[in-house]
Amino acid sequence: MSDWNTETAEWYAHKYGEYPTNKLGIEALKLPDNSIVIDIGCGTGCALRHAAKQVTQGILIGVDPVPRMIEIAREKTTSDSTASNIIFKVGSAEDIPIENNSADFILAFDSFDHWENQQQGLKEIHRVLKPDGHFIIVKDGGLPNNTEARQSFLDILEHSTFKIIEEQTIEDDEVLFTLWICKNE
């Protein structure tokens, strides 16, 4: 994420901070109320604020490599009374500041393509995810079945420890995106 800095964080937060994929993706998941959820590349924390409506007894942790983005996420979350169980940490997909085998769900909502090293990020997710946990990837715009980008994405997952167990294409008036639910093999 070397192109990300204070200026790009401000721009992103203004333009995409409350993007509809966050709300719609979380609604599609139906997270258990006692889950431990980590959002890699959490941006403004929008997905976690939506998740807090479902995960009322668990812990939600947002991780982002840009310190200003974490500041923005904290600022936006402080005023949300339903989000008292959200924590934000500076970190990257390649070096997640969380203990081994601790997460029930790890989210990558429109962040996977921004990781510096996707294979290292997948190894870290495997380390942090509980053995029966789920890794959720969202890609805005969806990936049609017969594209090079789709095949490249599937190849990366195939060479990791994850297997796709569910794929959904979600569309409403504002957005179209694909959501993959993966498990450790």
Rank of each mutant, 00 (worst) to 15 (best):
K130G: 14
L154I: 00
Q57K: 14
T178M: 12
S35C: 03
Q118F: 01
N117A: 04
M1L: 04
P65C: 05
G62D: 03
G133S: 08
S2N: 14
D3N: 10
R74P: 00
H14D: 10
K89S: 06
C182F: 06
F153K: 11
I164C: 09
K15R: 11
E10D: 12
F162S: 14
D173M: 08
T44H: 05
I125L: 05
S92Y: 02
V128Y: 04
D95S: 15
D140M: 05
E171Y: 02
E99D: 15
T147N: 11
Q118T: 11
Q118H: 06
Q119M: 13
A149V: 15
K89T: 00
A93K: 03
G141Y: 12
C182A: 12
K130M: 10
E174I: 03
S160V: 10
I137S: 02
E171A: 13
W11C: 04
G142P: 08
A83Q: 06
T6P: 00
L31E: 01
W115T: 01
S35L: 00
E158T: 11
A108H: 07
N100P: 01
L24R: 14
H114G: 06
S102L: 09
E7C: 00
S102Y: 04
F162N: 14
E148R: 02
P32V: 09
K123C: 07
P67I: 02
I125C: 11
D140A: 09
F88K: 09
T56D: 07
K76T: 07
A93E: 00
E158P: 02
D155V: 12
V37S: 09
G45N: 11
Q118E: 15
E7A: 08
D110I: 01
E124M: 01
G91T: 00
K89N: 03
D155N: 13
K123I: 05
D64R: 10
L122D: 01
V66M: 08
N85M: 08
E174L: 12
I136T: 01
I181V: 13
E171K: 15
E166I: 00
H159M: 08
D3T: 07
L143Y: 12
E166S: 15
N101A: 11
Q118W: 01
A83C: 12
K53A: 12
I87E: 15
S92A: 14
G43H: 02
V175A: 07
D132W: 03
R127F: 06
L129A: 01
N146G: 14
Y12R: 00
H134S: 14
R127G: 08
I59Y: 11
E18F: 10
D39T: 08
Q54N: 09
Q119D: 12
R68N: 10
P20M: 04
R150C: 08
N145R: 13
E7R: 15
S35F: 00
L176Q: 09
N85G: 11
